[in-house]
Design a protein around this nucleic acid. Structure first.
Lengths: 143, 143
DNA sequence: TTTTAATCAGACAATTTAATCTGTTTTAAT
DNA sequence: ATTAAAACAGATTAAATTGTCTGATTAAAA
């Protein structure tokens, strides 16, 4: 099992963070993303295609083609990528799997989990991905 | 996708919380758990069997058989059930899916997520399941 | 002693998610 | 023009998770 996001979403987040470390105008083919991040090429291709549809990244076809961010990294937040791939449903579902977990019909840990969920959402929404550039470079350097 | 636990684990947590609301010595057949919590009978049976192996609940075979907690609810914490079913790996894995996410080779959100993870662990370890009795009864009453 | 209702065991099926394969289209370099 | 390298599209496979079925064993009630 993954921690909180699907594998698709994990890879999508990694890739977008990776793009944010690169020159904004330079396109990067899926093959390179695959190699740098150790993600199966065909799989990351699909994910990048779907992020292109979502408008988070742009693609250039043909030889010397590839992908780049569709906007400046200071305009993109982690939650945007999560929303595009996994959606926001898990931020609104019961952590114990009970149906209709609402303030009126709360599950036994409704309040405590609600706090955590809010903090998670806050973390993913707080900073734009340009803020992660240094940390991402350090991490990718060690893979 | 589930929020944080597998479906097995969600159901296991629900079931154990349910047992904690009942008379400690009274056994409850899987069929009843299934009906009360709207969980497929054969599926919850398997989960209860595995929790029996883990020593969290006990089973009584034959007619008038069923399941009960193996110890008093004041001895059981949510994290015990999580550990028995999903394991604790997700509390030690990178939320972005990067390999070897450690303080030495941290991912871009290592520190922020670490805090959340610690809080989640705290929540699951803080209180024993007898403390959830009232809230569980209220929730199950509305299913 | 027979019946009934339960756990238990193991195989099986369905669904979802992850990953791969095959081929087409696009575009720049040759 | 031809070739090469890329995105793109859709089908297929593989693996993991979720859920079901069949039958054996157990133990209390009838």
């Amino acid at each position: 099992m993954t921690v909180f996001f699907s594998k698709k979403c994990e890879y999508g987040l990694q890739a977008v963070l990776f793009f944010a470390t690169r020159d904004y105008d330079c396109v990067c083919p899926a093959e390179e993303v695959s190699k740098k991040l150790n993600i199966p090429k065909e799989f990351i291709s699909k994910i990048l295609q779907s992020l292109t549809e979502s408008g988070i990244i742009e693609s250039k076809k043909g030889k010397l083609g590839g992908f780049k961010l569709a906007m400046h990294p200071s305009k993109i937040k982690l939650i945007d990528i999560v929303e595009a791939i996994d959606g926001l449903e898990s931020f609104n579902s019961c952590v114990l799997g009970f149906p209709e977990c609402t303030p009126e019909k709360p599950c036994p840990v409704h309040d405590q989990w609600g706090e955590l969920r809010a903090k998670a959402l806050e973390m993913l929404s707080a900073e734009t991905i340009d803020k992660f550039k240094e940390k991402t470079l350090n991490k990718i350097g060690t893979i």
